[in-house]
Amino acid sequence: ESETFDVELTKNVQGLGITIAGYIGDKKLEPSGIFVKSITKSSAVEHDGRIQIGDQIIAVDGTNLQGFTNQQAVEVLRHTGQTVLLTLMRRG
């Protein structure tokens, strides 16, 4: 069981404050995608409180990250504006 949710964030001096990890899993058993690996102290993400380590980032400002490499996803996140809309999925 999984839930998908949107989080809109405004960057602070730390930026968004997440590091991400790309993961290619076994299609049947484990998900592939871009996941939140860590959250920086005092960052926008930590202050917001809704995003957790292990959440999958589905889209950034409407750009679907399906099939993106870790590096491609980093580039998408790097080129966002001051306000960012993240679409995430959390597995229950």
Rank of each mutant, 00 (worst) to 15 (best):
E1I: 13
E1N: 14
S2F: 15
S2A: 12
S2I: 15
S2W: 10
S2D: 10
E3F: 15
T4G: 03
F5H: 01
F5E: 03
D6Y: 06
D6L: 09
D6A: 11
V7E: 04
V7N: 01
V7M: 00
T10C: 11
K11W: 04
N12G: 14
V13G: 15
V13W: 11
V13E: 15
Q14P: 07
G15H: 06
G15E: 09
G15I: 03
L16K: 01
G17W: 03
I18C: 05
T19L: 05
I20M: 07
A21H: 13
Y23V: 14
I24E: 14
D26Y: 10
K28G: 13
L29D: 12
L29W: 13
E30R: 06
S32P: 10
I34C: 06
F35D: 03
V36E: 09
V36Y: 13
K37M: 05
I39F: 07
I39Y: 05
K41T: 09
K41E: 10
K41L: 05
S42H: 15
S43V: 11
V45P: 06
V45W: 06
E46H: 13
D48E: 08
D48F: 03
D48M: 07
Q52C: 08
I53W: 00
I53H: 03
G54K: 03
G54L: 02
G54S: 02
D55T: 00
D55F: 00
Q56A: 04
I58G: 02
I58M: 10
A59F: 02
A59M: 07
A59K: 09
V60H: 00
V60L: 02
V60R: 00
D61Y: 02
G62W: 02
T63P: 00
T63I: 15
L65C: 07
L65R: 00
Q66H: 11
Q66S: 12
G67L: 05
T69D: 09
T69E: 05
N70L: 14
N70F: 14
Q71L: 07
A73Y: 03
E75L: 02
V76A: 11
L77E: 00
R78W: 06
R78E: 11
H79S: 15
T80I: 02
T80K: 04
T80Q: 02
T80R: 03
Q82T: 10
V84F: 06
L85Q: 13
L85S: 14
L85F: 08
T87A: 01
M89Y: 13
M89C: 10
R90Q: 03
G92F: 08
G92L: 10
